[in-house]
Simulated scan of single mutants.
Amino acid sequence: MRKIHVIGIGAGDPEQLTLQAVGAMRGTDVFFVLDKGEVKSDLTRLRRDLLDTHLPPGSYRLVEARDPERDRGADGAAYPPAVGDWRSARAGVCERLMAEELGPDGCGAFLVWGDPALYDSTIGVLEEVLERGRVAFEYDVVPGISSVSTLVARHRTGLNRVGRPVQITTGRRLAEGLPEGVDDVVVMLDAHQAFTRYADQDIDIYWGAYLGTPDELLVSGPIGEAGPRIERLRAEARERKGWIMDTYLLRRRPADRGPGAGDRGPGTAG
């Protein structure tokens, strides 16, 4: 039976791969990549760099296919169906790749940014392929270092504070309001910089873009002070590269601590 590895590859740094990930890569015949187009071609290049760093030259085969377009304008009640349609289209592409490019007893792999269990669709897509019943395979999941872990490591801070919860959410959710009873909130997939609406509150932000890559950017501090700098850097980076991947941690300051008191990170941009 076909075997598929879903391998978490971290945020981009070749040194972030785990030994388990490298072992799975070395046992793989074909690596499948869903290309997001010319604008994000350096994402494919980064995957090739990872493979070339850890595998002998010429020892692997890379098969690319165009990632289906998603309706990014969908909002409200239309958003979940739009995501569902995109995942189904992705499942069709993955099904075809496995049927045409991988022998009945071959081993293939999908290289997933960060960790496959955190805001990634690959596991759900493969489950849909299995449900269709046209291609038989078994799969396993190799955890990776997420952008969240990389973010707090770069800022030299913790993800949560003693005895307190942390919540991971999206920019879409943050725009609806900060979660009740949670003082540490990690925000991913925020295309509209929802943090700006909290600039007048006692909240510190730890922001990072292109984490784990040579283009990495870091900013930290009170939202009121750091927010405009993040907006400027984000706009410049997006104009320069054509795309951006960023995430951030919002941290409410205790009432007895002044602005910036919770900022344990480097507070730099570079």
Rank of each mutant, 00 (worst) to 15 (best):
D71F: 14
R72L: 15
G76V: 12
G76S: 15
G76I: 14
A77M: 06
A77S: 10
P80F: 07
P81A: 02
V83G: 13
D85M: 13
S88Q: 10
A89N: 12
A89R: 12
A91W: 04
A91N: 01
A91M: 01
A91L: 03
G92S: 14
G92V: 13
V93E: 05
V93H: 05
C94N: 02
C94M: 07
E95Y: 09
R96T: 11
R96S: 01
L97C: 08
L97I: 06
M98D: 00
M98E: 00
E100T: 03
E101M: 05
L102A: 00
L102E: 00
L102I: 02
P104Q: 09
P104T: 13
D105L: 14
C107P: 08
C107I: 06
F110L: 10
V112L: 09
D115R: 12
D115N: 10
D120C: 03
T122C: 08
L126P: 02
R134M: 13
R134Y: 11
V135T: 12
A136P: 03
F137M: 05
F137K: 00
E138P: 09
D140T: 15
V141D: 09
V141R: 04
P143H: 04
G144E: 00
A153P: 06
A153D: 00
R154Y: 03
R156M: 15
G158Q: 03
G158T: 15
R161D: 15
G163A: 01
P165T: 13
V166Y: 11
Q167P: 14
I168Q: 03
I168R: 05
